[in-house]
Amino acid sequence: MTRRSARAAFSLLLFVLPAFILYLIFLVIPMFQGSYYSFTNWDGLNKTYGFVGFSNFAEAFREDSHFRSAILFTAKYVICAVVLQNAVALLLAMLIESRRRAKGLFRTIFFMPNMLSVIISTFMWVFVFSKVIPALSEYSALKFLDVSWLGNPTVSFWTIMIVSVWGGVGTLMLIYMSAIQGIPQHLKEAAIIDGAQPYHMLRYITLPLIAHALTICIFLTLNSSFKVYDLVYALTGGGPGRGTQVITMNILEEAYQGNYRYGYASAKAIILFLIIFVITMIQVTVMKKREVEA
């Protein structure tokens, strides 16, 4: 190495050092520690613990019915959230972009929930479901609203979905809007001259040309919905019973609420990481291939 390149490398390291130290301490080391502890029976306090191989992973899949049902519930949530959030966001983006007036107003309205803390806005929804809707259902025309929105796991799933779509579409809508604005005007005009109906426009012009936005948005929603916590915590607390418990909640319960099985909780956390990693990698690879250039 010449003196010059050695000096360049040294100055590179100096500039990167502060960020690298933070990154090492708060991301890399915890990640490695977590992977390591997932093979032990550490309880978080004791200095001594044993190496248990894959038995934590085996237990999580074979014996832990709470964890299994949390995975199933989360999977159901992910599928519905990804589909509904993207469908509503795309619909909103197209509706707003096709308006000439009040674009900014509508954009602000639909983006508003993203400004608020999930905990705080979900408490507003708790008020709506526990006080406002019961009051509405006293009118005979709205009798069908008289269900146990937060007390029955089957209904609660859809309650969670209502709030999830409400809070999740804002950012996606903005991304779709900017993608739609990027569609060349001449393509739209040519399609209209050729007599394309709105459905054809969507199928053959809009969707193919915003494919990159679809890739990003589906990646974002997959990521965020596998990790969902705040919303379910504030709305149902995972209840009734464990009826709406999501994976994150199950991990926290294992690590802190009475159990203190850090090693086992770490194993579950690694499982969550692997699930998200594999699924998003497949999604991005498959969808990248299908994108086209305008």
Partner: peptide, 20 residues
Amino acid sequence: LFVASMLIPFQTIMVTLTKM
């Protein structure tokens, strides 16, 4: 290295991060 770490979910490191 920096970019790859963006794929680590907070949930995966939260227990060890708290201890750190």
